[in-house]
């Protein structure tokens, strides 16, 4: 994986501006998929812009004249789980970087935010099954471990989200915030199953789809022999404008189907293409404003 150094620098500036907690970013102000069970207030923390104002403890404000929000036990123990697709399909790129590089940068971005906010985070890789899961920890050292993992990962195998999530959810001991980053190019039935499993075992789930512009637009012409990067199946065809149009329609249909599933479960679903600068993509994800823009 190749991390763009400027991305990390920009990330640093971004976190200063944002001052957001990753947990807030991921939950996005939406009600948790798991309804509250009379949560106990664990402690308070300073209010940051974007926090749910309903959590402001006005008694503390009255005493201190500073804004603090209640932190519940559950929130206090919230861990950020990032599940990253490491199948062969992610080893594809026609633009500046491959999909895995892009996805990994996004994952690293979220991990970096967690470090800045002293929150626990972890990263797991999957293809047909779960691979390389790290123990949730805080701090920069853990961040570098994640970076090392991402840099040394081999991309191989088919994608099976259902299988991978099934295995991963057994490892989740508490409610967590989950981010799945993949191209989600696999049969819809398998995807559906995986999404449902993840939603049941997470407080909040965000799904980030990474696609390459080449696979979106089919940026080739004439007679082409296509080989599937995962199944190795070959298909020869002539790319006429009509064919490309039909392909795009089918791809969009697939994406819309995933979006519908996510909407029905209250899951955030975002599609990004690798020709978009990562920092812009990250800002879109965290919903903030980049300094100087």
């Amino acid at each position: 994986m190749a991390i763009d150094p400027s991305f990390l620098e920009e990330l640093g500036e971004l976190t200063l501006v944002m001052r957001k907690r990753v947990s807030n970013v991921v939950s996005g102000g939406r009600p948790s998929i798991v309804p509250g069970r009379g949560l106990e207030i664990a402690d308070h923390r300073e209010y940051f812009a974007g926090d749910d104002f309903r959590l402001i403890d006005w008694r503390v404000y009255g005493r201190t004249e500073k804004l603090y929000i209640r932190r519940f036990e559950e929130e206090k123990d919230m861990i950020l789980h990032i599940l990253l697709d490491a199948s062969a399909s992610m080893d594809f790129g026609t633009d500046r970087m491959k999909k895995f590089d892009y996805a990994g940068s996004i994952a690293l971005g979220f991990s970096y935010l967690s470090v800045k906010n002293h929150e626990k985070f972890t990263t797991g890789l999957y293809s047909e099954t779960l691979r390389d899961v790290m123990k949730p920890q805080k701090g920069k050292t853990h961040l570098f471990k994640v970076l090392h993992l991402l840099n040394t990962t081999q991309l191989y195998g088919k994608t099976n989200l259902s299988m991978a999530v099934g295995q991963y959810t057994k490892l989740i001991k508490s409610k967590s915030l989950s981010i799945i980053i993949s191209d989600f190019i696999e049969p819809l039935d398998s995807l559906k199953d995986g999404i449902y499993r993840m939603a049941r075992h997470s407080k909040d789930v965000t799904m980030i789809q990474i696609l390459d512009p080449g696979e979106v637009d089919l940026r080739w012409d004439d007679d082409i022999k296509f080989e599937d990067s995962e199944t190795r199946r070959m298909e020869r065809t002539f790319l006429s404008p009509g064919f490309k149009h039909e392909y795009k329609e089918r791809l969009q249909e697939h994406i819309m189907s995933i979006r519908e599933i996510c909407n029905s479960l209250g899951i955030t679903f975002v599609t990004l293409t690798t020709d978009k600068p990562i920092i812009d993509a990250f800002i879109e994800l965290v919903g903030g404003v980049r300094r100087g823009s």
Binding site: M90, F92, E215, D222, E227, E230, T237, R250
Partner: peptide
């Protein structure tokens, strides 16, 4: 000869064909 392209989304191409 036809280009040989490895892409992840062949399943859509096969469906069209």
């Amino acid at each position: 000869k036809p280009k040989h392209i490895v892409i992840p989304s062949v399943m859509f191409i096969m469906a069209i064909e």
